[in-house]
């Protein structure tokens, strides 16, 4: 189904994006999303490579995974609670 998904940015990724969230077109493969983000925000790749990713609150790694309309995606940089 065509539409949009929401992507959330935290911590170091916001240095590149300048925003906490935005809408991107769905469907899109995870690998395609990473390429799109580097096009939109040159240099963000450096942070993403050290980060993890969630789709609808589940951690995902498969670059072939298809993000659907209505999904919530988040880039999770290395954490620093405490």
């Amino acid at each position: 189904m065509a539409g949009n998904f929401k992507i959330l940015y935290f911590a170091a990724t916001t240095i590149y994006t300048g925003k906490d969230s935005e809408s991107l077109s769905a469907p899109m493969k995870l690998g395609e999303m990473y390429e799109l983000l580097e096009q939109k925000y040159p240099g963000i790749k450096g942070v993403i490579q050290g980060s993890m990713c969630t789709v609808n609150l589940d951690y995902v790694e498969d670059h072939e995974l298809v993000i659907e309309a209505g999904d919530e995606v988040a880039i999770i940089p290395p954490v620093s609670a405490g």
């Binding site: 290395p78 609670a81 405490g82």
Partner: peptide
């Protein structure tokens, strides 16, 4: 909690600020 909780610390220094990473 320090290793896994999805929380990020931002420290502001005299010469700027930085997002900390517990892992590194």
């Amino acid at each position: 909690v320090k290793k896994r909780a999805e929380i990020w610390k931002r420290e502001v220094f005299q010469d700027g600020s930085a997002w900390r990473s517990n892992r590194d």
